Amino acid sequence: MTLDVLPSQQSVHAVLLEGVQRGEEAAFRDLYDLTRARVHQVVLATTRSPEHAAEVVQEVYLYVWLHATTFDADRGSVLGWILMLARRRAVDRVRHVVRTNRREQRDAASTALTVPDVADLGLARHEAARLRGALQHLSELQRDAVVLTFLGGYTHEQAAVLLGVPLGTLKTRVRAGVMRLRHRLEAPAA
């Protein structure tokens, strides 16, 4: 007895497969009903995914319907043949999923490391040039205060100490400088 199937079940499977080989839909339906639970169990154990298992079971039975004539009784039982097809397809599905996940991870990693678009670089350079030009129109005191606090990353308190001015004075210079920059940058580019 192969695969916990009684000899009478083996002969029923064989008779049904012969009907499938002749294109009998009723024979296929009966063979499916008799074997699908076992096939699903084997596929689910391999894929560990109900969604993938359902798809693989469908593929297996489609193959059985289309290629029933390739079954060789000298090589084993009908159920053994169907379960072998199921295991192979399930392993193929797992391999495909693993490859797809690796490819997606690799693509995500390479996307994160891609070189910026040339147009984006050009735009950034243009904006940086406009900012440098606008900074030239500030007084030296305002420029130093704005550059330290906005571009240098210093807090207002740190910038005040570095420039040797009271905190209120620094804040006034930053506020006036930012207003002049905003006015210059909002004006249409010449």
Rank of each mutant, 00 (worst) to 15 (best):
V43N: 06
T35M: 10
R125L: 15
A108N: 09
A45P: 01
S77F: 02
L17T: 03
V118F: 07
G23R: 04
A68N: 01
A53I: 04
E55I: 00
V42A: 06
R38D: 08
A86D: 09
V20M: 05
S11W: 10
V91I: 14
V12Y: 01
E25Q: 09
R106W: 12
V64E: 04
I82N: 10
G80K: 06
E25R: 11
D74Y: 03
M84Q: 14
S49W: 01
R102K: 08
H67A: 10
P116F: 04
S49L: 03
T114P: 02
G122S: 13
V60G: 07
R87I: 04
T100M: 10
R99I: 04
E18L: 11
L66P: 00
V98S: 09
A112L: 14
W65I: 07
H52Q: 06
T111F: 12
R89N: 05
V56I: 14
R103K: 04
E104G: 00
R102S: 02
T114Y: 07
Q10G: 09
V91E: 13
L16G: 10
D92P: 00
L16Y: 07
A73Q: 13
H96W: 11
A86W: 05
V12W: 03
L34V: 00
H40A: 09
A119Y: 07
T100Y: 07
S77H: 01
D107Q: 13
L16P: 14
R103T: 09
A112H: 08
L66N: 02
V78G: 05
A124K: 11
T111Y: 14
I82G: 05
V60R: 01
V78W: 04
A37Y: 05
F71H: 15
P50C: 00
T69W: 01
H67E: 10
L44W: 04
Q105Y: 11
V60L: 09
S110M: 14
Q58E: 06
Q10S: 11
R125P: 00
R93Q: 13
Q21K: 12
I82K: 12
A27M: 04
V12N: 04
L44S: 03
D33W: 10
E59H: 10
T35L: 12
D74M: 03
V115I: 14
R38Q: 11
D117W: 04
L62G: 08
S110Q: 14
L62I: 08
E24K: 11
R95L: 04
D92I: 03
A14V: 00
V78M: 09
A90S: 08
L17A: 04
E18P: 01
P116S: 09
Y61M: 04
L16E: 08
R93N: 00
G76W: 01
V56Q: 13
A53H: 03
E51L: 05
Y61I: 11
R106D: 14
R93H: 01
S110R: 15
N101S: 12
G23E: 01
V98F: 05
L85C: 08
V12S: 03
Q41L: 03
Q58C: 07
A53G: 05
Q41K: 13
G122M: 10
E25N: 05
R48W: 00
R29V: 14
Y63G: 03
R103E: 08
R36F: 09
V39L: 10
A112K: 15
